[in-house]
Design a binder for these strands. Sequence first.
DNA 1: AATAGCCCCAACCGCCTACAA
DNA 2: GTTGTAGGCGGTTGGGGCTAT
Length: 316
Amino acid sequence: MSSNTKSLSSTSCSEDESELRRGPWTLEEDTLLIQYIARHGEGRWNLLAKRSGLRRTGKSCRLRWLNYLKPDVKRGNLSPEEQLLILDLHSKWGNRWSKIAQYLPGRTDNEIKNYWRTRVQKQARHLKVDTNSTEFQNIIRCFWMPRLLQKIGGESSFSSPMLIQNPMALQPLDNVSQHLTAATASPSQIPGQGALNMSGTIYNWDSIQKQNAESEFCTSSCILPSEPIDMPKMSQIPECPPSPFHAILNNDNAKGGFCVDDNSYDIEAFNLQGSVSAQGFAGNSAGDCYVAESNWLDSDFSCGMWSMDELWQSRS
DNA sequence: AATAGCCCCAACCGCCTACAA
DNA sequence: GTTGTAGGCGGTTGGGGCTAT
Protein backbone atom coordinates (compact mmCIF):
# COMPACT_ATOMS: atom_id res chain seq x y z
CA MET A 1 0.00 0.00 0.00
CA SER A 2 1.44 3.28 -0.96
CA SER A 3 0.54 5.66 1.74
CA ASN A 4 1.87 8.53 -0.29
CA THR A 5 -0.97 8.30 -2.69
CA LYS A 6 -3.67 8.11 -0.14
CA SER A 7 -6.00 10.97 0.27
CA LEU A 8 -6.10 12.83 3.50
CA SER A 9 -8.61 12.09 6.16
CA SER A 10 -12.03 13.58 6.39
CA THR A 11 -10.82 16.83 7.85
CA SER A 12 -9.07 17.80 4.66
CA CYS A 13 -11.95 19.73 3.14
CA SER A 14 -12.17 22.11 6.02
CA GLU A 15 -8.51 21.98 6.72
CA ASP A 16 -7.16 25.06 8.29
CA GLU A 17 -3.52 25.90 7.98
CA SER A 18 -3.20 25.84 11.74
CA GLU A 19 -4.88 22.46 12.15
CA LEU A 20 -2.91 19.32 12.58
CA ARG A 21 -2.97 16.94 9.69
CA ARG A 22 -4.05 13.36 10.10
CA GLY A 23 -4.21 10.33 7.93
CA PRO A 24 -1.76 9.06 5.38
CA TRP A 25 1.52 10.83 4.92
CA THR A 26 2.37 12.53 1.67
CA LEU A 27 5.68 12.34 -0.11
CA GLU A 28 6.34 15.95 0.82
CA GLU A 29 5.78 15.25 4.49
CA ASP A 30 8.04 12.23 4.38
CA THR A 31 10.75 14.29 2.75
CA LEU A 32 10.43 17.01 5.33
CA LEU A 33 10.67 14.52 8.16
CA ILE A 34 13.65 12.72 6.69
CA GLN A 35 15.49 15.94 6.06
CA TYR A 36 14.82 17.25 9.53
CA ILE A 37 16.01 14.06 11.19
CA ALA A 38 19.08 13.99 8.96
CA ARG A 39 19.99 17.41 10.29
CA HIS A 40 18.89 17.20 13.89
CA GLY A 41 18.56 13.54 14.68
CA GLU A 42 15.73 11.59 16.22
CA GLY A 43 13.96 12.37 19.45
CA ARG A 44 12.17 15.39 20.89
CA TRP A 45 9.32 14.61 18.60
CA ASN A 46 7.03 17.44 19.58
CA LEU A 47 9.79 19.93 18.97
CA LEU A 48 10.52 18.22 15.69
CA ALA A 49 6.88 18.43 14.70
CA LYS A 50 6.83 22.16 15.33
CA ARG A 51 10.16 23.09 13.82
CA SER A 52 10.09 20.87 10.80
CA GLY A 53 7.05 22.57 9.37
CA LEU A 54 5.05 19.40 9.54
CA ARG A 55 1.52 19.94 10.74
CA ARG A 56 1.58 16.65 12.56
CA THR A 57 1.75 15.62 16.17
CA GLY A 58 5.06 14.53 17.57
CA LYS A 59 3.59 11.12 18.07
CA SER A 60 2.61 10.87 14.45
CA CYS A 61 6.09 11.92 13.34
CA ARG A 62 7.70 9.38 15.62
CA LEU A 63 5.47 6.62 14.38
CA ARG A 64 6.01 7.47 10.75
CA TRP A 65 9.77 7.52 11.21
CA LEU A 66 10.05 4.37 13.27
CA ASN A 67 7.59 2.27 11.30
CA TYR A 68 8.22 3.43 7.79
CA LEU A 69 10.94 5.93 7.05
CA LYS A 70 13.83 4.79 9.18
CA PRO A 71 16.51 3.46 6.81
CA ASP A 72 16.89 0.09 8.50
CA VAL A 73 13.21 -0.73 8.41
CA LYS A 74 12.85 -4.00 6.58
CA ARG A 75 10.01 -4.36 4.12
CA GLY A 76 8.37 -7.43 2.75
CA ASN A 77 7.21 -10.75 4.06
CA LEU A 78 8.56 -12.19 7.23
CA SER A 79 11.03 -14.98 6.68
CA PRO A 80 10.45 -18.40 8.25
CA GLU A 81 13.20 -17.59 10.74
CA GLU A 82 11.45 -14.41 11.71
CA GLN A 83 8.11 -16.15 11.99
CA LEU A 84 9.66 -18.81 14.17
CA LEU A 85 11.19 -16.21 16.41
CA ILE A 86 7.92 -14.38 16.74
CA LEU A 87 6.05 -17.52 17.67
CA ASP A 88 8.64 -18.54 20.17
CA LEU A 89 9.10 -15.16 21.75
CA HIS A 90 5.37 -14.59 21.89
CA SER A 91 4.98 -17.84 23.76
CA LYS A 92 7.39 -16.45 26.29
CA TRP A 93 6.37 -12.83 26.50
CA GLY A 94 2.89 -12.61 25.11
CA ASN A 95 1.87 -9.39 23.40
CA ARG A 96 5.06 -7.56 24.21
CA TRP A 97 5.48 -6.50 20.64
CA SER A 98 8.24 -4.00 21.13
CA LYS A 99 10.23 -6.47 23.16
CA ILE A 100 9.77 -9.11 20.50
CA ALA A 101 10.72 -6.60 17.83
CA GLN A 102 14.05 -6.03 19.52
CA TYR A 103 15.06 -9.48 18.39
CA LEU A 104 14.02 -8.94 14.81
CA PRO A 105 16.27 -6.28 13.33
CA GLY A 106 14.46 -4.07 10.89
CA ARG A 107 11.04 -5.23 11.97
CA THR A 108 8.78 -2.95 13.92
CA ASP A 109 6.49 -3.79 16.76
CA ASN A 110 3.63 -2.67 14.57
CA GLU A 111 4.57 -5.11 11.85
CA ILE A 112 4.91 -7.98 14.28
CA LYS A 113 1.62 -7.08 15.86
CA ASN A 114 -0.02 -7.01 12.47
CA TYR A 115 1.50 -10.38 11.62
CA TRP A 116 0.13 -11.86 14.79
CA ARG A 117 -3.31 -10.45 14.26
CA THR A 118 -3.65 -11.16 10.58
CA ARG A 119 -1.95 -14.56 10.38
CA VAL A 120 -1.92 -16.16 13.76
CA GLN A 121 -5.18 -14.92 15.19
CA LYS A 122 -6.90 -15.60 11.92
CA GLN A 123 -5.98 -19.25 12.23
CA ALA A 124 -7.15 -19.32 15.80
CA ARG A 125 -10.47 -17.94 14.68
CA HIS A 126 -10.77 -20.56 11.97
CA LEU A 127 -9.99 -23.25 14.47
CA LYS A 128 -12.38 -21.69 16.91
CA VAL A 129 -9.86 -21.50 19.67
CA ASP A 130 -8.44 -18.69 21.65
CA THR A 131 -4.86 -17.74 20.80
CA ASN A 132 -4.04 -17.87 24.49
CA SER A 133 -5.49 -21.32 24.92
CA THR A 134 -3.41 -24.38 25.57
CA GLU A 135 -4.81 -26.01 22.48
CA PHE A 136 -3.61 -23.25 20.25
CA GLN A 137 -0.22 -23.16 21.95
CA ASN A 138 0.04 -26.86 21.25
CA ILE A 139 -0.81 -26.36 17.63
CA ILE A 140 1.84 -23.73 17.28
CA ARG A 141 4.46 -25.77 19.04
CA CYS A 142 3.67 -29.09 17.53
CA PHE A 143 2.76 -28.16 13.98
CA TRP A 144 3.53 -24.67 12.95
CA MET A 145 6.95 -24.23 14.50
CA PRO A 146 8.21 -27.59 13.26
CA ARG A 147 7.08 -26.58 9.80
CA LEU A 148 9.04 -23.40 10.06
CA LEU A 149 12.03 -25.27 11.33
CA GLN A 150 11.84 -27.65 8.47
CA LYS A 151 11.53 -24.78 6.08
CA ILE A 152 14.54 -23.10 7.58
CA GLY A 153 16.52 -26.30 7.64
CA GLY A 154 15.53 -27.06 4.11
CA GLU A 155 16.99 -23.88 2.78
CA SER A 156 20.43 -24.21 1.34
CA SER A 157 22.32 -22.70 4.19
CA PHE A 158 21.25 -21.23 7.40
CA SER A 159 23.15 -18.21 8.37
CA SER A 160 20.40 -16.06 9.67
CA PRO A 161 21.89 -12.70 10.51
CA MET A 162 18.91 -12.17 12.73
CA LEU A 163 19.65 -15.08 14.99
CA ILE A 164 23.34 -14.60 14.88
CA GLN A 165 23.02 -10.96 15.74
CA ASN A 166 20.70 -11.81 18.58
CA PRO A 167 22.28 -14.54 20.59
CA MET A 168 19.72 -13.93 23.28
CA ALA A 169 16.92 -14.67 20.92
CA LEU A 170 15.31 -18.04 21.39
CA GLN A 171 16.79 -18.23 24.80
CA PRO A 172 13.77 -20.17 25.98
CA LEU A 173 14.98 -22.93 23.77
CA ASP A 174 18.29 -23.18 25.48
CA ASN A 175 17.31 -26.45 27.00
CA VAL A 176 17.38 -27.99 23.62
CA SER A 177 21.06 -27.49 23.33
CA GLN A 178 21.66 -30.02 26.02
CA HIS A 179 20.31 -32.70 23.75
CA LEU A 180 22.19 -31.74 20.69
CA THR A 181 25.63 -32.32 19.49
CA ALA A 182 26.28 -28.74 20.20
CA ALA A 183 29.33 -26.73 20.74
CA THR A 184 29.45 -23.25 22.10
CA ALA A 185 31.07 -20.71 19.94
CA SER A 186 31.12 -17.05 19.28
CA PRO A 187 29.27 -15.86 16.20
CA SER A 188 32.54 -15.42 14.40
CA GLN A 189 33.19 -19.10 14.74
CA ILE A 190 29.99 -20.11 13.10
CA PRO A 191 30.47 -22.15 10.00
CA GLY A 192 28.86 -20.73 6.97
CA GLN A 193 26.91 -23.84 6.19
CA GLY A 194 24.24 -25.72 7.99
CA ALA A 195 24.54 -24.21 11.38
CA LEU A 196 22.10 -22.27 13.44
CA ASN A 197 23.38 -20.21 16.28
CA MET A 198 21.10 -19.78 19.19
CA SER A 199 22.22 -18.59 22.54
CA GLY A 200 25.76 -19.16 21.53
CA THR A 201 25.05 -22.70 20.50
CA ILE A 202 25.65 -24.15 17.10
CA TYR A 203 22.88 -26.37 15.89
CA ASN A 204 23.77 -28.59 13.04
CA TRP A 205 21.06 -28.54 10.45
CA ASP A 206 22.42 -31.53 8.63
CA SER A 207 21.81 -33.69 11.65
CA ILE A 208 18.44 -32.11 12.21
CA GLN A 209 17.39 -32.90 8.70
CA LYS A 210 18.84 -36.34 8.92
CA GLN A 211 16.80 -37.03 12.00
CA ASN A 212 13.74 -35.76 10.30
CA ALA A 213 14.42 -37.86 7.28
CA GLU A 214 14.77 -40.88 9.48
CA SER A 215 11.52 -40.16 11.20
CA GLU A 216 8.94 -42.75 10.49
CA PHE A 217 5.97 -41.78 8.42
CA CYS A 218 7.29 -38.36 7.85
CA THR A 219 5.85 -37.91 4.47
CA SER A 220 3.70 -35.24 3.06
CA SER A 221 0.76 -37.55 3.35
CA CYS A 222 0.74 -37.11 7.07
CA ILE A 223 -0.87 -33.76 6.77
CA LEU A 224 -3.34 -33.30 4.04
CA PRO A 225 -5.10 -30.16 3.02
CA SER A 226 -8.46 -31.80 3.01
CA GLU A 227 -9.28 -32.28 6.61
CA PRO A 228 -9.06 -29.53 9.13
CA ILE A 229 -8.02 -30.05 12.68
CA ASP A 230 -10.83 -31.27 14.83
CA MET A 231 -10.65 -28.76 17.59
CA PRO A 232 -12.97 -30.46 20.04
CA LYS A 233 -10.61 -33.39 19.91
CA MET A 234 -7.56 -31.22 19.69
CA SER A 235 -8.49 -29.60 22.93
CA GLN A 236 -8.23 -32.93 24.64
CA ILE A 237 -4.71 -33.54 23.55
CA PRO A 238 -2.30 -33.46 26.43
CA GLU A 239 0.10 -30.62 26.24
CA CYS A 240 3.03 -31.29 24.03
CA PRO A 241 6.58 -30.23 24.78
CA PRO A 242 7.02 -26.51 24.97
CA SER A 243 9.42 -26.38 22.12
CA PRO A 244 9.30 -28.01 18.73
CA PHE A 245 13.05 -28.02 18.81
CA HIS A 246 12.81 -30.69 21.40
CA ALA A 247 10.50 -32.86 19.42
CA ILE A 248 12.52 -32.54 16.29
CA LEU A 249 15.98 -32.58 17.65
CA ASN A 250 15.91 -34.81 20.65
CA ASN A 251 17.39 -38.16 19.80
CA ASP A 252 14.89 -39.84 22.04
CA ASN A 253 12.20 -38.60 19.77
CA ALA A 254 13.77 -39.33 16.47
CA LYS A 255 11.03 -41.78 15.73
CA GLY A 256 8.44 -39.13 15.97
CA GLY A 257 7.37 -37.40 12.85
CA PHE A 258 6.24 -33.94 12.16
CA CYS A 259 5.24 -33.83 8.63
CA VAL A 260 6.26 -30.77 6.86
CA ASP A 261 5.47 -29.60 3.43
CA ASP A 262 8.29 -27.45 2.23
CA ASN A 263 5.95 -25.30 0.30
CA SER A 264 3.44 -24.63 2.99
CA TYR A 265 5.12 -23.86 6.21
CA ASP A 266 2.57 -21.28 7.08
CA ILE A 267 -0.19 -22.13 9.46
CA GLU A 268 -2.66 -22.11 6.63
CA ALA A 269 -1.58 -25.67 6.00
CA PHE A 270 -2.61 -26.97 9.38
CA ASN A 271 -4.64 -29.94 8.51
CA LEU A 272 -4.57 -33.43 9.75
CA GLN A 273 -5.33 -36.70 8.19
CA GLY A 274 -6.81 -39.45 10.25
CA SER A 275 -3.41 -40.56 11.35
CA VAL A 276 -1.00 -38.06 12.65
CA SER A 277 2.27 -38.34 14.38
CA ALA A 278 2.39 -35.69 16.96
CA GLN A 279 5.36 -36.23 19.12
CA GLY A 280 4.67 -35.28 22.64
CA PHE A 281 0.94 -35.68 22.33
CA ALA A 282 1.29 -39.28 23.17
CA GLY A 283 0.79 -40.71 26.57
CA ASN A 284 -1.59 -42.94 28.32
CA SER A 285 -2.97 -40.13 30.31
CA ALA A 286 -2.78 -36.45 30.39
CA GLY A 287 -0.60 -36.73 33.41
CA ASP A 288 1.82 -38.96 31.60
CA CYS A 289 2.28 -36.56 28.81
CA TYR A 290 1.98 -33.20 30.35
CA VAL A 291 5.31 -31.79 31.28
CA ALA A 292 5.78 -28.50 32.93
CA GLU A 293 7.75 -25.89 31.05
CA SER A 294 10.55 -26.09 33.54
CA ASN A 295 11.31 -29.74 33.34
CA TRP A 296 10.08 -31.14 30.08
CA LEU A 297 13.52 -31.95 28.96
CA ASP A 298 13.97 -34.44 31.68
CA SER A 299 10.87 -36.30 30.82
CA ASP A 300 10.43 -39.23 28.57
CA PHE A 301 8.70 -38.40 25.35
CA SER A 302 9.74 -41.47 23.51
CA CYS A 303 6.24 -42.65 23.03
CA GLY A 304 6.43 -43.43 19.38
CA MET A 305 3.74 -42.98 16.84
CA TRP A 306 0.13 -42.48 17.71
CA SER A 307 -2.78 -42.09 15.46
CA MET A 308 -5.32 -39.46 16.28
CA ASP A 309 -7.78 -42.19 17.10
CA GLU A 310 -5.35 -43.68 19.55
CA LEU A 311 -4.84 -40.32 21.06
CA TRP A 312 -8.54 -39.83 21.60
CA GLN A 313 -8.85 -43.30 23.04
CA SER A 314 -5.96 -42.72 25.32
CA ARG A 315 -7.74 -39.73 26.68
CA SER A 316 -11.01 -41.47 27.26
C1' DA B 1 -16.46 -6.55 -16.44
C1' DA B 2 -18.71 -5.62 -12.21
C1' DT B 3 -19.18 -6.21 -7.52
C1' DA B 4 -19.09 -7.92 -2.92
C1' DG B 5 -16.41 -9.51 0.66
C1' DC B 6 -12.09 -10.23 2.73
C1' DC B 7 -7.31 -9.15 3.85
C1' DC B 8 -3.63 -6.40 5.16
C1' DC B 9 -1.27 -2.73 7.18
C1' DA B 10 -0.47 2.24 8.09
C1' DA B 11 -2.04 5.23 11.24
C1' DC B 12 -4.58 6.63 15.16
C1' DC B 13 -6.10 6.30 20.02
C1' DG B 14 -5.87 5.84 24.84
C1' DC B 15 -3.27 4.51 28.53
C1' DC B 16 0.94 4.13 31.11
C1' DT B 17 5.52 5.41 32.77
C1' DA B 18 9.41 8.39 33.40
C1' DC B 19 11.04 12.61 34.44
C1' DA B 20 11.54 17.45 35.12
C1' DA B 21 9.74 21.64 37.19
C1' DG C 1 3.95 15.29 46.74
C1' DT C 2 1.79 17.24 42.59
C1' DT C 3 1.42 18.54 37.98
C1' DG C 4 2.61 18.76 33.18
C1' DT C 5 4.95 16.95 29.29
C1' DA C 6 7.14 13.61 26.33
C1' DG C 7 7.77 9.24 24.80
C1' DG C 8 6.53 4.47 24.44
C1' DC C 9 3.36 0.68 24.18
C1' DG C 10 -0.56 -2.28 22.94
C1' DG C 11 -5.18 -2.21 20.97
C1' DT C 12 -8.10 -0.76 17.33
C1' DT C 13 -9.67 1.04 12.98
C1' DG C 14 -10.24 2.70 8.15
C1' DG C 15 -9.61 2.14 3.61
C1' DG C 16 -6.99 0.56 -0.48
C1' DG C 17 -6.02 -3.58 -2.78
C1' DC C 18 -6.89 -8.27 -3.81
C1' DT C 19 -9.73 -12.25 -4.78
C1' DA C 20 -13.68 -14.92 -5.60
C1' DT C 21 -18.01 -15.08 -7.76
